[in-house]
C-alpha cells in the first residue's frame, strides 16, 4: 500500500471533521482517517496551532471543528496537492 503524505493525511483528517457536520471526537477521526493514536495527537496539535481546527470540551469530552482556514484548505486541496507535488514539498 502506498504511504500517505503529510498533506494527504491533513486532508483526510479535515475531511472527517467536515463530514461529521463540524464536530467530531478523536476516536472517530482515528477510525475514519486510518491513523494511530500517537499520529493523530501529533497532527491534531499541529492543526490546532496552525488554526485549521478548534478544540472544544463538552461534558469532559474533546470535540473538534473546522475553522475558516481548514475549510479553505479542503476547498483548494487539489491545487495545493498539484503544486506541492511539482516542487517536492511535503
Amino acid at each position: 500500500m502506498k504511504k500517505r503524505e503529510r498533506l494527504e493525511i491533513i486532508h483526510d483528517i479535515l475531511e472527517v471533521i467536515q463530514n461529521s457536520k463540524g464536530k467530531v471526537k478523536p476516536t472517530h477521526i482515528i477510525y475514519k482517517a486510518n491513523l494511530s493514536h500517537q499520529m493523530l495527537t501529533e497532527y491534531l496539535n499541529e492543526l490546532i496551532s496552525k488554526e485549521f481546527i478548534e478544540e472544544k470540551e463538552v461534558k469532559g469530552k474533546k470535540t473538534y471543528s473546522l475553522t475558516e482556514k481548514g475549510y479553505n484548505y479542503l476547498k483548494d486541496y487539489s491545487i495545493i496537492k498539484g503544486f506541492a507535488d511539482s516542487y517536492g514539498l511535503e
Binding site: K69, Y73, I80, F83, A84, Y87
Partner: peptide, 18 residues
C-alpha cells in the same frame, strides 16, 4: 506571490522558502 498564497493556506515552511 502564488507560492505565498499556498503558504498562507498550508503554513508549510518549505513553501515559504520557495
Amino acid at each position: 506571490w502564488y507560492s505565498y498564497k499556498i503558504y498562507k493556506i498550508t503554513c508549510q515552511e518549505q513553501t515559504k522558502f520557495l
